[in-house]
Amino acid sequence: MSKFTHIDDHGNAIMVDVSEKNQTTRTSQAEGFVYMNDKTLAMVVEGSHKKGDVLAVARIAGIQAAKKTSDLIPLCHPLMLSSVKVDFDAQPEQGRIRVLSMCKLTGQTGVEMEALTAVSVACLTVYDMCKAVDKMMRIEGVRVLSKSGGKSGDWSVVND
């Protein structure tokens, strides 16, 4: 079994020292899904929700969340992100909105947590704005789709 990097020899939580790592361009993509009824999905897509443009607000929330990841997740390094993108894909045949994030930087540690945080908060924002009209919404499938850069190289989910 490999040694946990966030725990020292005495079992104490530590922040990993990345000072000796090479700076490389690193990216990560993540996704999540917000399931909702047809009426709610149509309202979101058409922009007719009385609270305003749900997806615009969720995009901003996701971007802000990525920038605040180190404030939310213990032991995450504060990162100088060079790009954060949050996009949406309405999938009415599945009764859901797919939320996709991409985070990028040149640095010494990866951006998977930032991509996951962006997606999670964007999904939560859609939920929050729509909960009054759809009590049965649910968030599922939050996961990393890909990462690139760094010593461990590139990785991506095989099309599934």
Rank of each mutant, 00 (worst) to 15 (best):
L116I: 12
N12R: 15
D87P: 02
A65C: 10
S152K: 14
G107R: 02
K131V: 07
A122G: 02
D128C: 08
H6W: 01
I139S: 01
Q29R: 13
T40S: 07
W155A: 06
S152T: 13
Q91S: 08
V99E: 00
A118L: 12
E31I: 13
L105Y: 06
K50Q: 15
I14S: 06
V18A: 07
S156M: 12
M15H: 14
S120C: 14
Y35A: 12
G150M: 11
A90F: 07
S82G: 13
D71L: 10
S82A: 15
D89K: 13
Y127T: 00
M80K: 05
P92G: 00
L55C: 08
Y35D: 06
G62I: 08
T69Y: 05
M15S: 06
G141P: 04
K51M: 14
A115G: 03
G107A: 08
D9W: 09
L79N: 11
L72E: 06
A118F: 14
A118I: 14
M43K: 05
V84H: 01
Q108S: 02
A42C: 08
D87W: 09
V45G: 00
N37K: 13
D89H: 12
M1H: 13
K131Q: 07
A30Y: 12
E46P: 01
F88P: 06
K85V: 03
T24H: 09
I60G: 02
D8W: 14
D71A: 10
D38T: 15
L116S: 11
I97E: 04
K67T: 05
T40L: 00
L100E: 11
M15C: 13
D8Q: 13
V121Q: 00
S101G: 07
T27A: 04
L72K: 11
K68L: 02
P92F: 03
N37Y: 04
M129C: 01
G95E: 03
D17Y: 03
I14Y: 09
S146L: 07
R96M: 02
M1P: 08
S48F: 09
H6F: 13
P78L: 10
T109M: 14
D134S: 04
E112Y: 04
E112Q: 14
V142C: 11
V99Q: 02
S28P: 04
A115P: 01
K50C: 12
M136T: 14
A42W: 09
M80S: 12
G52N: 15
V158Y: 10
V86T: 00
L41P: 05
E46G: 01
M36V: 09
Q91N: 14
V45C: 01
G149D: 03
V133M: 09
T109A: 15
R59K: 10
V99R: 05
T117P: 03
L75W: 08
K3Y: 10
S82W: 07
F88A: 08
M137N: 09
R98K: 15
G95S: 05
L81C: 08
T125F: 02
F4Q: 12
L79W: 10
Q91L: 14
V119H: 06
Q108E: 14
R138Q: 04
A66G: 01
V133P: 01
D128K: 02
R143D: 09
G110L: 00
V86C: 06
C123G: 03
